[in-house]
């Protein structure tokens, strides 16, 4: 197993992810969300909340009261949260056909 531990934040540059996401094309599904937090309280109890960090588009956002909200429209369907959420608290499926991220270059 990896001996890797937490990396201090100051070694990393600050990145404004929302600007970077402007480069991504989405077909946003306004009628149906494909991601959801299964149980809000579970997030409150989750101490580490690694989703705030590991999501490559920063879709997981900490809310007041320790709940977590998903900015579903920025999801790129990578699956990281499905695999990594410690309490397995993300209901994850693909968006409906034709919706979601649409890479222009890939």
């Amino acid at each position: 197993m990896s001996k890797q531990t937490k990396i201090p934040q100051e070694e990393l540059p600050e990145v404004y992810i929302d600007d970077i996401l402007m480069s991504i094309k989405y077909f946003t599904d306004e009628q149906e969300f494909h991601l959801a937090i299964k149980d809000t309280d579970t997030c409150v109890r989750c101490v580490d909340k690694p989703c705030i960090n590991f999501c490559p588009v920063g879709a997981y956002r900490l809310q007041e009261g320790g709940t977590v909200q998903i900015a579903v429209q920025s999801c790129i369907e990578c699956g990281t949260c499905r695999v990594l959420c410690p309490p397995n608290n993300v209901s994850w499926k693909y968006p409906r056909g034709g919706f979601g991220v649409a890479y222009k270059f890939g």
Binding site: Y16, D18, L21, R61, Q63, Q69, A71
Partner: peptide, 9 residues
Amino acid sequence: GGRGLGSPK
């Protein structure tokens, strides 16, 4: 406000 607000709130 823009996307940097993080949420509709």
